[in-house]
């Protein structure tokens, strides 16, 4: 059974995306994923596929960054992992790892290793639909360097 896990109303504010977190239609699963632990994991199947991937830092650049991501140049391919996770990269590492979607107690959703949600190597899922995902690295340094990532399904 699927239900809406979280849908927070977004309020336009100077901080932009930081205040807007929407992750739709994700159902917690049993902890059989690579991120099993004392927290909920979410099905990551909807991440699988080819995505246009681009990043920006300032809200004024978001719309055009999204348009460019929609062009799907050199798409980023997310494959299913050996367990319930997906094969993706972390910051500054060319090796792929199986990562999982994790739900924190505060309702935020993260993508990362089998560590408590919000680990410095995690990405925070700012928003996620079937067609578009917005993520940013939890690590402040990586977040500053790479900015906010937009994934648009090809």
């Amino acid at each position: 059974m699927k239900h809406r896990v979280e849908k927070l109303a977004c309020v336009a504010m100077a901080l932009g995306l930081s205040a807007c977190a929407t992750v739709e239609n994700l159902t917690p699963t049993a902890s059989r994923s690579p991120a099993s632990g004392s927290y909920e994991t979410l099905p990551a199947d909807r991440l699988i596929g080819k995505w246009g991937m681009a990043s920006y830092r300032e809200e004024k650049d978001r719309a055009r960054t999204e348009r460019i991501a929609r062009q799907c140049r050199q798409p980023y391919v997310i494959a299913k992992g050996p367990t319930d996770g997906v094969m993706m990269h972390v910051a500054d590492d060319s090796q792929q790892y199986e990562l999982a979607l994790k739900r924190a107690r505060d309702g935020k959703t993260y993508l990362g290793f089998a560590t408590p949600p919000g680990d410095p190597q995690d990405r925070e899922i700012v928003s996620m639909t079937d067609k578009e995902m917005i993520m940013r690295f939890v690590d402040p340094d990586a977040n500053t360097r790479y900015g906010t990532f937009i994934y648009v399904r090809c």
């Binding site: 246009g52 681009a54 920006y56 830092r57 650049d61 798409p75 060319s94 900015g147």
Partner: peptide
């Protein structure tokens, strides 16, 4: 460029201007 993406596949395919 594509060869850089091959070496560093975690890079965004487009990065809007900024300090990094």
């Amino acid at each position: 460029p594509p060869e850089m993406i091959t070496r560093q596949p975690y890079l965004p395919r487009f990065m809007a201007g900024g300090p990094g």
